[in-house]
Design a protein around this nucleic acid. Structure first.
Lengths: 178, 178
DNA sequence: CATTACATGTAAAAGGTTACATGATTCG
DNA sequence: CGAATCATGTAACCTTTTACATGTAATG
């Protein structure tokens, strides 16, 4: 399973980083396909440190709040590799948007339009994010994720602007006909 | 927020059901876009019952394991409606597939092919699922979700069979060139 | 000098999964 | 009569979010 620890190891495999940077790089790389909150991140790093899968490059931290840079160890690299080869081709989406749209017949026109508009805004953000690949030339893996993200965002936008909007309009027509 | 309790209310808004049936109908409607385990479902139903948002149609249950059919109450319908109008157009995907592909450069050809094949198999299942809409004529909301699911699955399949596979092949070429 | 970005952590609570325990009904 | 499906529930565990507490460094 790919959990937060595994993701930390993965980001660190591309270069040393602080906890804060790990989270940022993950967001830059995956956009909406992976998230990470500090409350999960720092405990995960502590566990990785205790397990010897990462090492801290700062021996002389005075306070527990001082900046700390992590590096992947050989043990960590092996652990990451063994997680990756056991990974399944799974994907799990929990969509508040679709859940609400499913009950569209209970909702008024304004709410439906708002839901679609919000979804479109987010998707356009995702598309722009993946289109402007900043920083160093990406690995092939990064390229794969970026292209996949673009294609899926594009497909969702096209649907919502065309057929999706048409279904919403049909709901409204039905209501008026009644 | 759309949580498991809200989903139960939503399913029940389309007709009375047992806990088991609620889970089944949700899977039928949303495919991979919503899941629900029994360990979350039954405690959620108990809370809804205590809150008076659903009622039990079986007064005379001898054992706690006897079948029980739930019905949405007026209070439950209001609660559902107020959740829906507060819903955001959000969607969150956690993709073990993309996480693994991101580190494609660390993986061998066989693993990459397996990941793509597994993803394709799942997506084809999703597509088939949404294409064969069984049962009673769907509400417009159901139609929306079904069409959205089809479009997104189609886009992902096309990508993986074309450009995605090409990137995987490029990785292999790079490796051989080294 | 104020704001934004950088930076680390803890504690409580929510939310969910997995495994387990138990049994009835239906269909070939 | 055996297997699949239907059916309900608990408990232990895991992960993650949210809110809080605490600063430093860079930038306009």
């Amino acid at each position: 399973m790919i959990d937060i620890r595994c993701l930390c190891l993965g980001v660190l495999s591309l270069g040393d980083a602080t906890g804060y940077e790990i989270r940022k790089r993950l967001k830059d790389s995956f956009g909406p396909y992976q998230g990470m909150s500090y409350g999960a991140l720092y405990p995960a790093l502590a566990k990785l440190l205790a397990a010897g899968e990462v090492e801290s490059l700062d021996g002389d931290r005075v306070s527990a709040l001082d900046k700390r840079t992590y590096r992947l160890t050989e043990k960590g690299r092996e652990s990451l590799h063994s997680s990756l080869i056991r990974a399944k081709g799974q994907e799990q989406t929990r969509s508040e948007f679709l859940a609400a749209m499913f009950f569209a017949d209970m909702l008024d026109r304004d709410t439906l339009d708002r839901l679609v508009d919000e979804r479109l805004a987010e998707l356009r953000g995702v598309l722009a994010h993946f289109q402007t690949y900043r920083g160093s030339p990406p690995t092939e893996g990064q390229r794969f994720v970026g292209r996949f993200g673009q294609v899926m965002a594009r497909a969702a936008i096209d649907f919502l602007q065309g057929e999706g909007r048409a279904i919403v309009n049909a709901i409204e027509r039905d209501r008026k006909a009644r």
